[in-house]
Design a protein around this nucleic acid. Sequence first.
DNA 1: TTTAAAAAGTGATTAACATCATTTTTTCAA
DNA 2: TTGAAAAAATGATGTTAATCACTTTTTAAA
Lengths: 229, 229
Amino acid sequence: MLDKSHKHVTCSTCLSRSNSLLGGLCTDEVSNLENHRSCNLFKKNQSLFLEGSFPRGVFCINQGKVKVFKRGDEGKEQIIHIAKEGEIVGFRAMFSEEVYNVAAETLEESNICYIAKDDFLNMIDTNAALRNGIMKELSKELADRASFITNMAQKSVRERLAFALILLEKIYEPEPINLSREDMANFVGTATETLIRLLKDFKEEGLIEVHTRKMTVTNAKKLIDIAGK
Amino acid sequence: MLDKSHKHVTCSTCLSRSNSLLGGLCTDEVSNLENHRSCNLFKKNQSLFLEGSFPRGVFCINQGKVKVFKRGDEGKEQIIHIAKEGEIVGFRAMFSEEVYNVAAETLEESNICYIAKDDFLNMIDTNAALRNGIMKELSKELADRASFITNMAQKSVRERLAFALILLEKIYEPEPINLSREDMANFVGTATETLIRLLKDFKEEGLIEVHTRKMTVTNAKKLIDIAGK
DNA sequence: TTTAAAAAGTGATTAACATCATTTTTTCAA
DNA sequence: TTGAAAAAATGATGTTAATCACTTTTTAAA
């Protein structure tokens, strides 16, 4: 259970994180940001935004995890990204001036701040460093997704699962990975049953430890080896 | 064979295209651009840049087609994007300040201009509209790639091929699609043999017409139907 | 025009993975 | 604490698509 006091954190908590896009703001800008954001406690599995809706602002994750996903023809989710503390979610569609083509939902109880579209765009217009940071971020994600596509096309499910576990470990550390089998399957891009069978294999091979929902990587080297480059 | 005179086109030819990122430049900026770009005729299958190399500038396609691809573990190409006339290729890695994570190569004889990194970045710094256009473009591509990933994960090869043919038709029109079976397979994300068999099916179902390398879509409606949403 | 080489096409076989049906375990609210 | 619902796990089966081995056709260079 998340401490309720998290509901009123200062922005600096978030901005000090190594992965924060807004890390380079000056004191004035930070206090301005403090005045323009609203902070909310989100329950587990609560939606931040839906595919097809218009963006009205961005979400800054102070505490918790958020899945960004797209639904395929039959409604099955494909998880594109899992965002953690310090990340900003939902700003991509704002630039494209189109509706969201993905949806976002909390994976656990989370503390998330909201910055209205205009305030966010203002910040960007007046801050070249921030702008560059965002362009850099967009480009990096584009690169990530090229790799994602290539992995989906060319790697086996076993290889992709190994790859996913390495990624998830980094996202969740120092906590154990904590995802439902279905979400994990939707991240790897496979059927839940197949994922469960492969997890069992990895467990038996001593690569991971599983305690119901929670799992930890015990042999990252081997997993990286299985995942391929 | 491409007319040699294409080697010395004016930028306005490119910029007038509907898909041009640089469409919004003013007269001064265009003439400045004319002075800073160099134009070259590229042979078929000529490399623009390699995965792992540092970006030194961007490529503006005046005439021709370029595949943007990534190699998987075993060297197999996954084509991420096929760029046509008017598109700018190779600017994403410039923002991320990292090496290219994809490679680019002409699919046919092409006329392509080169703009050095500094000149391009200068243009962006001094032109807010261009900057916004680029951010918009990056965001749109991010959305495209989320769909690409979801398609790879959830659609059958037959569905993906139908989808690819619809895309390729738009890229190549008014010309017929002109891609090797291998390239097409690497775009769809399948084995060449599988692609060939499915093309045959589509041909027999009257959805496409094939003349050796060249093919045209004869029943787009049905293909869209097969592709799914 | 001829002829290597590359690309396209075919057939047989196999492996990976999805799907469906069902059981077991875990979770969580009454 | 209990019982119903959700999630996880297991087994059997079917399908898709990869792989391999080979033939035919097309391309492009001598």
